[in-house]
Write a protein that binds this DNA or RNA. Structure first.
Lengths: 123, 123
DNA sequence: ACCCCGCTTTCACGCTTTTTTCACCGATAG
DNA sequence: CTATCGGTGAAAAAAGCGTGAAAGCGGGGT
């Protein structure tokens, strides 16, 4: 949707854990390996990665990735979050990126390690 | 467009897997064996090889190889990618170079090995 | 001029992948 | 228990892609 940058001189690159996201190219590298994401999956990932660490509502994500308003009952965002989680987990099994905040939305953030014993935000 | 090199002193040579591409000569060697490519096929290969590892859109490829803008509905790029794949596969059966990223474009990169079981950026 | 041949362009059909939509199910809160 | 929320498999619809083949275009030889 929104294209913030078209200059090949300063390509935007997002990093998150061992992920490298190149928005202007539609490319995602997981530890150097290229992932194959669909357009929606990719846009969703990029949208979340741009706001790492913050909780983003479904309405917000829908507006950014799909454009237009999220209609009541539309589960598109959930469905794609699920797809994305699968692909990310397939590529990086011991790393979690997308965290659910029931009633609020999702938060994208590479899980620091594998020992979360009292987080509460998503355990 | 941008010609970085015309000097015969420093001939550009591109490498990709067991491919050796000599743009100024119009020659491609696969494990030493010369391939017979048409002009379009060759230019397309060179264009992709120059940007190995990145996803290149059809529009971009068309501009580079054919010149001018890709008209809506024009499948030229797809057709030549297909031709190219055939010839490359004939020469190097157990190696894949051109990967499709649906909705984005193509990525040229010698398939590392055949033991990546995750999602498979291509199969 | 005419024919042959290889390269390029265009067309169309069918398969694959993606996107959308629906439904069921477990979990959570009141 | 009932209502709500979120995860996800799967069906349906749409979009994207691979490719054989026909058509268009020169160039060379006879």
């Amino acid at each position: 949707m929104a294209v913030f940058q078209e200059s090949p001189e300063v390509p935007e690159i997002l990093y998150a854990g061992e992920l490298e996201i190149r928005p202007h190219e539609g490319l995602v590298l997981a530890t150097g390996q290229a992932l194959t994401l669909s357009v929606r999956e990719f846009e969703l990932l990029a949208a979340m990665a741009r706001r790492q660490g913050t909780i983003i509502t479904r309405e917000d994500l829908y507006r950014t990735v799909w454009g237009g308003e999220l209609r009541h009952g539309d589960r598109s965002v959930d469905v794609y979050v699920s797809k994305l989680r699968n692909k990310l987990e397939a590529a990086l099994p011991d790393r979690r990126f997308i965290h659910t905040h029931p009633g609020f939305g999702y938060r994208f953030q590479p899980q620091p390690s594998r020992n979360v014993h009292m987080d509460g935000a998503d355990g």
